[in-house]
C-alpha cells in the first residue's frame, strides 16, 4: 500500500512541476504587470502580425495535409504495389527527422547559393525568408499526422464496404463521400487537430527558413523567442500565452474526439 501511495505521489509531484507549474507560470508572467500591459503587448503590431501569419500558415498547410494524408492512407491501405513499404517509410520520415534538418535542406535547395534558388530568384520567386518557405517547412514537418491516424483505421476496416458500394453503382467520388469519409471521419478530425496544433507551434524548421523579419516573416513561436531575447518578458509571455491557449484548445478538442470514438 505504501509503495503504491508513494508512486502516486511521485507521479503527481512530477506532473505538477513538469506541466502544471510551467503552464501557470506562463499566464502569471503574462499578466504580471496587469491586464493593460498584457493587452498592449498582444496588440503590438509585430505580435499581431505574427499571430496572423501563424494562422495563415496553418490555414494553408492543414487542407493540403488532410488531402495528402487521405490520399496516402487510401493508397497504402487499398492497394498492393511495388514500393509500398518504402512509401510507408517515407510518410513517417518527417517524424524521425529533426525539423531543423528539414529547414537546412530547404535552405540548401532554395537558398541564394542553393540548387534551385538562383533559378527561382531570376524568375522573381522568393521561397526563403518569405511565406512560401515557412509554409513548405511546416507542411513537411506536419505531413504525417493525418495519414498516421487514418491509415490503421482504413486497414482495419478493409474494403468490403467500398466494394459493396461499387456493385451498387456508386461512382468513385460517391464512394469516397458517402462510404469512406464517414467511416474515417473521427480519425481524420483527430489527425487534423494534431496537425493544426503542430503547424501553429512549429519552431525549429521555421526558424531556419523564415529569417525572423519582424512584422514580416515572424511566426508566433519565433516572435516569442525574439521578445524574450529583447528582455521583454511580459511581451514574450503574452505571446506565449496565445500559443498555449491554442494548444489547450487543440488538446480539449482531441480529448473530446477520443470520447466520441
Amino acid at each position: 500500500m505504501t509503495a503504491r501511495r508513494l508512486l502516486i505521489a511521485a507521479a503527481l509531484i512530477s506532473t505538477l512541476f513538469l506541466v502544471v507549474v510551467p503552464l501557470a507560470y506562463i499566464f502569471s508572467r503574462a499578466f504580471g504587470q496587469g491586464w493593460a500591459a498584457y493587452q498592449a503587448n498582444i496588440l503590438h503590431p509585430d505580435t499581431l502580425h505574427a499571430i496572423w501569419l501563424t494562422a495563415v500558415v496553418a490555414v494553408i498547410v492543414l487542407p493540403i495535409n488532410i488531402a495528402f494524408g487521405i490520399a496516402a492512407a487510401w493508397l497504402v491501405a487499398r492497394f498492393r504495389f511495388w514500393g509500398r513499404g518504402l512509401l510507408v517509410l517515407l510518410i513517417e520520415i518527417p517524424f524521425s527527422v529533426s525539423p531543423i534538418i528539414a529547414g537546412i535542406c530547404y535552405l540548401l535547395l532554395y537558398g541564394r547559393q542553393g540548387l534551385l534558388g538562383p533559378l527561382l530568384l531570376e524568375n522573381g520567386i522568393q521561397i526563403l525568408f518569405a511565406v512560401p518557405g515557412i509554409v513548405l517547412v511546416t507542411m513537411f514537418v506536419t505531413s504525417p499526422f493525418v495519414a498516421r491516424e487514418v491509415l490503421p483505421l482504413m486497414e482495419a476496416q478493409g474494403s468490403e464496404q467500398e466494394q459493396a458500394a461499387v456493385t451498387l453503382g456508386a461512382s468513385g467520388w460517391q464512394i469516397f463521400r458517402r462510404v469512406t469519409l464517414p467511416n474515417i471521419r473521427w480519425a481524420l478530425l483527430y489527425g487534423a487537430v494534431l496537425c493544426a496544433a503542430r503547424a501553429v507551434g512549429e519552431f525549429g524548421g521555421v526558424s531556419v527558413v523564415s529569417g525572423s523579419i519582424r512584422g514580416q516573416t515572424n511566426t508566433l513561436p519565433l516572435q516569442v523567442e525574439l521578445l524574450f531575447n529583447d528582455l521583454n518578458v511580459v511581451g514574450a509571455f503574452a505571446a506565449a500565452s496565445t500559443l498555449t491557449l491554442i494548444a489547450l484548445v487543440a488538446l480539449a478538442v482531441k480529448t473530446l474526439l477520443d470520447r466520441q470514438h
Partner: peptide
Amino acid sequence: GFVFQHYALFPH
C-alpha cells in the same frame, strides 16, 4: 447485387 459474408453494411 453482391452480398458479402460479413454483410458490409454501411455502419453510419
